[in-house]
């Protein structure tokens, strides 16, 4: 039995950060598993590259001609070049959300993967960090492909755009962590029907398709969308102009990611280690 004094000290610390997060040793093992699984479904991954291509092409041939140029910062950019960063951020979000919700729920409830993992030296913290890491890695792959597509279509406006990969990792990290945290509260598949009710508004109203100034007096609402902060980062990278607000953007995403991971690890421990 632990001495009472030690228990007290731990409980004060865990009020801020759950103890499980101190106990992360080998999350990479779970990533390794995901790699083996994905190796068989590589065709699926490759075909995922086509989606951004279709979207970007469609916007170029259709909407760009209708809209003309849009102002970003002080510059005028063609509409397709304006939308592309928004779509890039949105696709990072969607990928991370899908991986961390439906996929995780399946592994949790149907395949009971985490039960068998916890019987090994893996810990709840390993699982939370491992799964989120995997979602981030996949996001990294997709965003690289997205960037390549933009490059081929001539939509990359600045060399700084290399940083967009980092922004996508951040977006993926934040949404995967929060998504997985929400998944731990899901009771059945039916709960996931509400998922689009969250992701769709984020997708549409995060200054993805038009600048926040279009909202007039309501433009501050857009700031509440976590996706907006991702979009803003990538858009800034694409024109190569950064302002102080970038720090806020990054802080919001990092904050979300940390909260998500903490909640996830704690919930796994609570639900599976009974």
């Amino acid at each position: 039995m632990t001495a009472p004094a030690a228990t007290e000290r731990i409980s004060i610390a865990t009020r801020i950060i759950p103890a499980v997060l101190f106990d992360v040793r080998r999350p990479q093992r779970l990533v390794e598993r995901s790699l083996v699984v994905t190796r068989r479904g590589w065709l699926m991954v490759v075909s995922g590259f086509f989606e951004p291509l279709f979207y970007l092409l469609s916007i170029r041939v259709g909407l760009s001609a209708l809209v003309g140029d849009v102002a970003v910062g002080g510059d005028l950019v063609p509409y397709d070049e304006f939308v592309a960063p928004g779509l890039m951020a949105a696709s990072a979000m969607n990928g991370a959300v899908f991986d961390s919700t439906m996929n995780v729920f399946h592994k949790w409830k149907q395949a009971r993967l985490y039960d068998s993992l916890l019987a090994t030296p893996m810990s709840a913290g390993d699982i939370a960090v491992g799964e989120v890491t995997w979602a981030v890695i996949r996001g990294l792959l997709y965003s690289t492909a997205f960037l390549a597509t933009m490059l081929v279509l001539g939509m990359v406006g600045s060399l700084w755009m290399v940083l967009s990969i980092g922004a996508c990792v951040l977006i993926g990290f934040a949404f995967a962590a929060v998504g997985m945290a929400c998944t731990t509260f899901a009771r059945s598949w039916a709960d996931f029907d509400y998922l689009p009710a969250v992701t769709l508004p984020l997708f549409l109203f995060s200054a993805t398709f038009y600048p926040p100034s279009s909202y007039g007096d309501w433009s501050w609402v857009v700031q509440l969308s976590p996706l907006y902060h991702g979009v803003a980062l990538i858009r800034a990278a694409n024109v190569g102009e950064f302002s102080a607000s970038v720090i806020v953007n990054i802080a919001v995403l990092v904050g979300l990611a940390l909260v998500g991971i903490a909640v996830t690890a704690r919930r796994i421990e609570k639900l599976l280690l009974t």
């Binding site: 598993r33 699984v37 395949a111 993967l113 039960d115 068998s116 019987a119």
Partner: peptide, 10 residues
Amino acid sequence: PQMDQLDNEL
């Protein structure tokens, strides 16, 4: 374990 918790994806 009681229910075989084998990894169905492997």
